[in-house]
Design a binder for these strands. Structure first.
Length: 638
RNA sequence: GCCGAUGUAGCUCAGCUGGUAGAGCAACUGAUUCGUAAUCAGUAGGUCCCCGGUUCAAAUCCGGGCAUCGGCUCCA
């Protein structure tokens, strides 16, 4: 019997039923087979060994595609697990997927693995690759699969199979050599395609991601189609480390975190504080343009208020408390309470709404020691926080305005971001109806504005669902910055109301929102984003005066005064060193403009600016330079 | 909080199996007065994270803490 196969270029070919995908591809385009790792039959991913028995559309999954790379990495993860079991008999396998930059596999083994073991495992992996074991897929009834894994002592695989939904009657296994794994597939045709890989790090990870479960040992690795791509990736990791904000924070003297002061507490040095001031100053103005009122609440509030808000019941673990005159006060972990009190301080009319209270509010949260991370995860931080109190019918427009604000702000800094909608968590307050309303309001606004998003089930705040905006750091870790949270509960708990057009009391709705999120975190991501080379408007030092010799100092001093007078952030570097040395120092400090002053400049009453990118701007008068800097700041360029 | 690793001069790192510490850069001093990414010479700098233990003797071995790093869980 003949079957018709349609190839990606719409070409149709007839084959005898029973032909494998690999054979079909070979007859279509022989060269396509060498870089193919798997295929899709009528959009369903399959192995190259899959047998075609009826008419179908065939797609090739090439290793050069994202999908193909994932298949390869997943197969490398199998090879690694195979090698680990060879090197460490008795190690139990659990799960091992491909991830964005590679793969990992989690093992349960009595002894801790060490970094030194990587060489042994890699060596073994190379042997497995050289053996050219085909990946063989087998489909069996789940009971038979349970028997196989039980016999091999693979308790975790047995658990995985037993937890499958009842309607799943068969499962697929993949074998390479004497290694067997439970796996959906597809896989590369044989271990010979495993050519370029490297094991990278070791970590603990809870079984099924639940901290109540046993901690397993995770090995992270990465893999590519060839050595060149691997080397490129490893070089990229090195580059990313160079722009790590913790390293740049020290090198550029922006901030420090001191054991003596305490973990997770940031100490801003002059340059870091200047950067922070510039961001905050910009942000205040942007808020005033958008109808926000600046407010400020106290740092500590009586514990009864935290009980009223629900924080004491649901957030106590993260809060710090202190005693004042035998009364317990909670150090604020959020800024909303004072804002509620401001609202309540007088009778509100529907004509007053929406009210938008903005505060650069400093909060303290007790974060577990293991999570602290430079500026990105700290125990004291300042949020660019606002609470918007409005009528339910104003909700959509307000959410839309915030999303626009976020989009504008991210555009100013040149950030790409991802959006997530986080729904009701297990521990939460409020009625089902309110959660439903709030979630719909957020989702509706996202849909109305055609903002692409993913749903993050159960990840909302305890008082309401939220829209999260996530930025990536240099090492591609995602960090939540902006967030919009919809809250029907706190207005209820605080009995907030407004007088409607009908003369009756009504309940307002509250939006909690931040644009940059935590200033500290945002700065951390920002430092990495710019690799420390801040645009002129944000650069703590915008220019530095470099004298060629000592005799140019008096003239350079007059230039300095003129620049400082004009509000330009300028430094002097008049040391008795060669110009090349000073250029190098300024370059390493990533200062936007180096202003060279020698004989020529002194005579012509000019300066010779050299930009950070190495270009010379030619002789400029001080006035011309001031105008240039002002223009760059205005346009937020450079 | 959990798993693993690490903690030596301001920074980056040596210091083998126990015999009380070194390099480069930075800093400081002097000489040099120099034109677009490192001038030369000299000087100084350390409770070897902290506390306890073993030992004639601990940076080194053991125990406990703290902190950092990579993850997990959690989160702005």
């Amino acid at each position: 019997m003949n079957i018709n196969i349609v190839f990606p270029d719409k070409q149709q070919k007839a084959f005898e039923a029973g032909v494998s995908v690999a054979q079909a591809i070979a007859q279509w385009r022989n060269e396509a087979l060498s870089s193919a790792v798997a295929a899709k039959v009528d959009s369903v991913p399959v192995d190259l060994s899959f047998v075609l028995t009826r008419d179908a559309a065939l797609d090739v999954i090439d290793v050069s595609s994202r999908e193909g790379l994932n298949v390869l990495r997943h197969s490398i993860a199998h090879v690694m697990a195979h090698a680990v079991q060879d090197v460490f008999p008795g190690a139990k396998v659990t799960i091992g997927p491909s991830i964005e930059d590679g793969f990992y596999y989690d093992f349960d083994y009595a002894e801790p693995f060490e970094l030194d073991d990587f060489a042994k495992i890699e060596k073994r992996m190379k042997k497995i690759a050289a053996a050219d074991y085909p990946f063989i897929r087998e489909v069996l009834p789940r009971a038979a699969a349970v028997d196989i894994f039980s016999a091999r002592g693979e308790d975790y695989k047995v658990e995985l199979i037993n937890d499958l939904p009842a309607d799943v009657t068969e499962v697929s296994l993949y074998k390479d050599g004497d290694y067997v794994d439970l796996c959906r597939g597809p896989h590369i045709p044989s271990t010979a395609k495993v050519k370029a890989f490297k094991l990278l790090s070791l970590a603990g990870a809870y079984w099924r991601g639940d901290e109540r479960n046993k901690m397993l040992q995770r090995i992270y690795g990465t893999g590519f189609a060839d050595e060149a791509a691997l080397a490129e990736h490893l070089a990229l990791i090195e580059e990313a480390k160079k722009r790590d904000h913790r390293r740049l924070g020290r090198e550029l003297d922006l901030f420090s975190i001191s054991d003596e002061a305490g973990a997770g507490l940031v100490i801003f040095h002059p340059k870091g504080m200047m950067l922070r001031y510039l961001i905050e100053d910009w942000e205040r103005k942007e808020h005033l343009k958008r109808g926000y009122d600046m407010v400020m609440g106290p740092q500590i509030l009586k514990v009864d208020l935290w009980k009223k808000s629900g924080h004491f019941d649901h957030y106590r673990e993260n809060m710090y408390f202190t005693e004042v005159d035998e009364q317990t006060y909670g150090i604020k972990p959020m800024n909303c309470l004072a804002h509620m009190l401001i609202y309540k301080s007088k009778i509100r009319s529907y004509r007053d709404l929406p009210l938008r209270y903005f505060e650069l509010g400093t909060v303290h949260r007790h974060e577990k020691t293991g999570v602290l991370h430079g500026l990105l995860r700290v125990r004291q931080f300042t949020q660019d926080d606002a609470h918007i109190l409005c009528m339910p019918e104003q909700l959509n427009a307000e959410i839309r305005a915030i999303a626009d604000f976020v989009n504008y702000a991210m555009g100013v800094f040149g950030f790409e971001y991802e959006v997530e909608l986080s729904t009701r968590p297990v521990h939460s307050i409020g009625s089902d109806a309110d959660w439903e309303l709030a979630t719909c309001a957020l989702e509706g606004a996202l849909k109305d504005n055609a903002i692409p998003y993913e749903v993050n089930e159960g990840d909302g705040a305890f008082y309401g669902p939220k829209i999260d905006f996530k930025l990536k750091d240099a090492l591609k870790r995602k960090w939540q910055c902006a967030t919009i949270q919809c809250d029907f509960t706190l207005p209820e708990r605080f009995d907030l109301n407004y007088i409607g057009p009908d003369g009756e009391k009504h309940r307002p709705v509250m939006l909690h929102r931040v644009i940059l999120g935590a200033i500290e975190r945002f700065m951390g991501v920002l430092i990495e984003h710019y690799a420390g080379a801040f645009p002129v408007w944000l650069a703590p030092t915008q220019c530095i005066l470099l004298t060629v010799t000592d005799k140019h100092i008096p003239y350079a001093e007059t230039v300095y005064s003129a620049l400082i007078d004009a509000g330009i952030r300028c430094e002097k570097f008049f040391d008795n060193e060669k110009l090349g040395y000073k250029i190098r120092q300024a370059q390493m400090q990533k200062i936007p403009y180096m202003l060279v002053i020698g004989d020529k400049e002194m005579e012509a009453a000019t300066i010779a600016p050299r930009a950070r990118d190495g270009s010379n701007l030619g002789a400029l008068t001080v006035e011309q330079f001031i105008a240039l800097v002002r223009e760059m700041c205005e346009k937020k360029k450079g």
